[in-house]
């Protein structure tokens, strides 16, 4: 990275292949991203979260589910860094294992919502007409509820539980993605290169998969990243209301909910898991914000 003082264009040759162009583009964006300290901070926290989740058994100091009734509600000290809860379980270890649940929820929701939203948006935008009308009215209905309230209603119908919470959050999270992909597609639909492949006789499926969807990908990815922050909060909110992961699973929102009874005397019961939620959510927000600056030329 000794060449960073040179203008970016000067240190790159004209790309010879599309793969090389992609690589150069990626490297250029990465350099831009790294220049923003806030998004780097976000990235670092996300990385730390991934490490915590991957190496939880080695990082945690205690068994997250082991009760120790001689040491209940202990304030933070050398043995229990973040204190213990009402069953004497080590809060630090529970937080470490809880990161797995948070990441599980985020990734599952994103894996469901990304492709579904992209598909609906791209199809709706490309074909227009009644297809568009039907899809967009459905999107309108889902968007007319605040995410948490709709998720609440779904979980109420499905019954509480981690997987139901994931389904409920996914059901509420796809509409913004679909809208975004549709808007992108609308701006591409009449582009010359699309007309060119149409004239070559490419099928609609081929055009959508190979020529439209890839162009929408970058803004969809940014949106998904920023959505992850919201997913963390909604999942924590559901956990707090007792509708998400059920005890004794160390889900962060559920931990806050359990600690609520003792919060005025034992602040660490709610302070620690809440701080974990906030840092995780803030990290995704910062990173997503930085990515948007890099990938979306329209934002200032």
């Amino acid at each position: 990275m000794t060449t960073t003082t040179l203008p970016a264009a000067a240190c790159e040759q004209t790309p010879q292949s599309s793969a090389q162009a992609l690589r150069q583009n990626l490297a250029r964006n990465l350099r831009k991203l790294v220049r923003n300290p806030l998004s780097v901070a976000g990235l670092v926290v996300i990385g730390a979260l991934l490490l915590l989740a991957a190496f939880a058994p080695w990082i945690a100091t205690h068994d997250p589910l082991a009760q120790d009734l001689a040491n209940t509600l202990k304030a933070p000290d050398a043995a229990h860094w973040f204190g213990t809860d009402e069953y004497g379980r080590d809060i630090f270890s529970r937080l470490v294992y809880g990161s797995r649940i948070t990441l599980y929820i985020i990734s599952l929701v994103t894996v469901i919502v990304g492709p579904v939203g992209l598909a609906i948006g791209v199809i709706s935008g490309y074909f227009g007409g009644w297809v568009d009308t039907v899809f967009m009215r459905i999107t309108d209905i889902f968007i007319s509820f605040p995410g948490l309230v709709l998720a609440l209603a779904f979980v109420a119908a499905l019954g509480p539980g981690l997987d139901h919470a994931v389904i409920a959050i996914a059901l509420t999270a796809w509409p913004p993605i679909a809208r975004l992909a549709r808007a992108e597609t609308l701006s591409l639909r009449k582009a010359d290169y699309i007309v060119a492949v149409q004239l070559q006789g490419a099928s609609a499926t081929r055009i959508l998969l190979r020529h439209v969807a890839p162009m929408c990908l970058s803004s969809v990815v940014v949106r998904l990243t920023m959505n992850m922050a919201g997913i963390i909060l909604t999942a924590a909110g559901l956990g707090f209301l007792g509708l998400g992961a059920q005890p004794p699973v160390p889900e962060w929102g559920a931990m806050i909910s359990a600690g609520r009874r003792y919060m005025l005397e034992c602040w660490w019961l709610v302070a620690m898991p809440g701080a974990a939620i906030m840092f995780a959510s803030l990290a995704f927000n910062l990173f997503g914000d930085g990515m948007r600056d890099v990938l979306d030329p329209r934002s200032e």
Binding site: A236, F240, I256, W267, V270, G274, S281
Partner: peptide, 10 residues
Amino acid sequence: SVPVFWFGMM
């Protein structure tokens, strides 16, 4: 990014 219920409790 702040979970509003947590901030309320704090």
